[in-house]
Design a protein around this nucleic acid. Structure first.
Lengths: 149, 149
DNA sequence: CATCAAGCTTGAATCATTCAAGCTTTCATT
DNA sequence: AATGAAAGCTTGAATGATTCAAGCTTGATG
């Protein structure tokens, strides 16, 4: 489909622009999250954690879903636990691990949060089909293993 | 082309996943930037500023390109100026504004930085055609005006 | 002029986040 | 079993990034 082999330099330029764009969108989303979550008494990171809590999971799992270090997840879950939204239970099969579960309040608040977040989302500018395309492209990049420096 | 009207709930679910994916990629990029930039004595934000300094521009312009507040840009440019990479010049036509220009050192370091950043970039997982698609999708979302809350 | 908006900076506050170190538990090898 | 290495989590310290509110100078508009 592309009519000619892409010049190597043009590719580098495109990558730089892409970095800016990805950064821009991420920023826009986290701004959106911060504002909406603020009305529920949650910080952006707390809201992200809550959003990713689709079910019971370990700290490590949550950290991965949040793209952060486990120690950061500890910090965030501490706050959510103090607010009575999440509980650390014993993991059924691994005594090292914690099993995170939402409390009733947590589940309720999460629903409210998700409703708020989908309102006026920056991603609403895309049609479902475009969102689908975007998703598959992002999956290609995100699933790439990080190269250790 | 789409076989059936998209169920409204499925769309909300897709949006949530997309948030996570965008966040993940942004994180991966900023991690990449931080590590690479670190070898040049730059923090991630400083590197981002340098990357976006494609030419002379005002503080506001830079802030917009970095998707942050002007006060944050001030903070970052302060550091770059102390390192002798950037200078604040008088703006030719508006005495309120500053004209940011790279010094010779800044230009050199920027080149090095861009070279480093394109090595092993998370975006390299995509073909040029895919990058192009991604770019146009991102532009659709990012250019959307932010709704004031 | 007089007023209001735009561009930038400062200061304060806060949040997010990483890294290194340490503890407990599990797993694999011997 | 016994030992050593790895995994899961937490703590503490340090730092960076970032926002918000307030204030200063300059520009534009009436």
């Amino acid at each position: 489909m592309t009519s000619s082999p892409p010049p190597p330099q043009a590719q580098a330029v495109a990558e730089r622009e892409l970095c800016g764009l990805v950064n821009g969108l991420a920023h826009q989303i986290s701004d959106h999250v911060r504002r909406r979550a603020g009305t529920l008494g949650l910080t952006a990171a707390q809201a992200t954690a809550l959003r990713e809590m689709t079910g019971a999971m370990t700290m490590r799992e949550l950290a991965e879903r949040m793209s952060c270090e486990p120690s950061n997840a500890t910090f965030v879950i501490d706050k959510l636990e103090k607010q009575g939204l999440v509980e650390r239970h014993a993991h059924p099969t691994d005594r090292r691990a914690k099993h995170l579960v939402l409390t009733a309040e947590g589940t309720t608040l999460r629903e409210q949060l998700l409703d708020l977040l989908t309102q006026d989302s920056p991603l609403a500018a895309l049609t479902p089909a475009q969102q689908h395309t975007l998703q598959s492209l992002l999956e290609k990049t995100v699933s790439q293993p990080q190269k250790a420096s």
